[in-house]
């Protein structure tokens, strides 16, 4: 039955992008990205446990421009998944399903994720992270 070629629902690309669908797929994409990112955090923990030399290697990577870029992306993905995840918890409780509310909370999750990411990096750098 699964092999029958069923007609697909209207193609994705003819839909006007809406906040609800953007927040939904972004939640999934950030979830997968964060899963890959756990390798980085695990690497950091293992290096810290292994000794000063391996710790310096990880630190060297984290302080390179590429490492910084990955960490910045990881921070944003984390905050987005957190903010939108909290939104999902309310949705799971049956709250906030009215369309205007959905759009408002969706926008709030996006804006909050950006604000919290910038705030975190500003605090980190002001604490001497640039050195």
């Amino acid at each position: 039955m699964a092999n029958v070629e069923r007609p697909l629902s209207p193609h994705l690309q003819i839909y006007k992008p809406q906040i609800t669908m953007i927040t939904s797929i972004t939640h999934r994409i950030t979830g997968v990205a964060l899963s890959v990112g756990t390798l980085l955090l695990t690497w950091w923990l293992i290096a810290a446990a292994a000794g000063p030399e391996s710790y310096e290697t990880v630190n060297g990577f984290m302080e390179s421009w590429f490492g910084r870029l990955v960490l910045f992306g990881f921070t944003w993905a984390l905050f987005y998944h957190l903010c939108n995840g909290i939104r999902h918890l309310f949705l799971d409780a049956g709250k906030g399903f009215e369309l205007p509310t959905m759009r408002k909370t969706g926008m709030a999750a996006i804006i909050m994720s950006v604000v919290l990411t910038l705030l975190t990096w500003i605090i980190a750098y002001s604490m001497g992270g640039a050195s």
């Binding site: 810290a48 710790y55 975190t120 001497g128 050195s131």
Partner: peptide
């Protein structure tokens, strides 16, 4: 996550001995 984030920020720029 909130607690872990506080840890990470407090460890920014710290040397190996401190992190350990």
């Amino acid at each position: 996550f909130v607690i872990a984030l506080a840890y990470v920020i407090s460890l920014v720029g710290a040397d190996y001995e401190r992190v350990r």
